[in-house]
Design a protein around this nucleic acid. Structure first.
Lengths: 155, 155
DNA sequence: ACAGATTGGTTATGCGCATAACATTATCCG
DNA sequence: CGGATAATGTTATGCGCATAACCAATCTGT
């Protein structure tokens, strides 16, 4: 691929990251949340109590990041940690009542953000978008075992 | 939009950001660069010497971020700052020879990253991708003047 | 010409994310 | 059983990014 096209793509991804995150930050600020924290709340709301290692996997970020994020959300009273009964190393993380209420508010913002994000795109493109983005993500994901699809011989 | 679809989209954008950045970090590390710095080098390579305010605009990040990034790239010898002749406040930033050499190396990596990223997508989707992503970015961009399509009361 | 607003840049601080080094507990296996 | 290995989590540190507060220089209007 020539550099111009490559740069257009990489730059577009970088800018989308920055702007989408900034917009999320603006929406979440009134709730006292920073971008990234909402993902943790939504994951707990969706899946229920879980240990940090599972959170790390679900959120796609490293254990030390989870340690710090959970610490801050615990300090602000939205989540709670308790020792896992069958594993003295692990901490089970769960939403508090305030955390559940907050997650519900986040859901509303999330819908608004998604609608705002895809404004002006044809419906069929919108329908395909998550799949396309997930393909891109899978292609550069070094955490997950890359599924061996016919393609091979990658340096 | 229902929450599931909204979450799928927002989550997909978040994950793409994380993984694409992580992959970029892995590719740039051998050059001694951190993700984000390559954008600054490429912009200087493309446009030539410019002041920090222009860099801030081009990179889509805030002036304090530019201050810190330029300071580090200057410390590592890849860029140089000199006072602007006609404005005693401004600093003109330009690539050093080592910075130019580095930018060329980054171009190669950038092509490889873009190809890797779009692996498995049909060519026509790849062709549309930058446009689609830029539309998404524009939709959530609070920095740029939002083009006035219809009037509505923003609370 | 001068006061006020605007622009360019920096410092201080905080968050999300990363890696490296480490302690603790679980598990695997000879 | 016991020692090696793996898994869970934390601390330390560093970068990119943000906002808030601030200084210095430029521009504007009267």
């Amino acid at each position: 691929m020539d550099f111009e096209r490559a740069d257009a793509l990489n730059q577009a991804i970088r800018l989308l990251s920055l702007r989408h995150r900034a917009r999320a930050a603006a929406l979440l600020a009134p709730l006292g949340l920073h971008p990234g924290q909402e993902a943790l709340l939504l994951e707990l709301d969706r899946t229920g109590p879980m240990i940090q290692a599972q959170l790390s996997e679900a959120l796609g970020c490293e254990p030390p990041s989870v340690t710090l994020m959970t610490r801050k959300l615990e300090a602000s009273g939205h989540i709670r940690r308790k020792p896992a009964p069958s594993d003295k190393r692990a901490s089970i993380v769960e939403l508090t009542d305030s955390g559940k209420a907050l997650a519900d508010q986040v859901k509303g913002l999330w819908c608004a953000l998604a609608e705002e994000t895809v404004t002006g795109l044809p419906a069929e493109t919108v329908a395909e978008l998550p799949g396309i983005l997930n393909t891109l993500t899978g292609n550069v994901d070094t955490r997950r075992p890359r599924h061996p699809q016919g393609h091979r011989d990658d340096g």
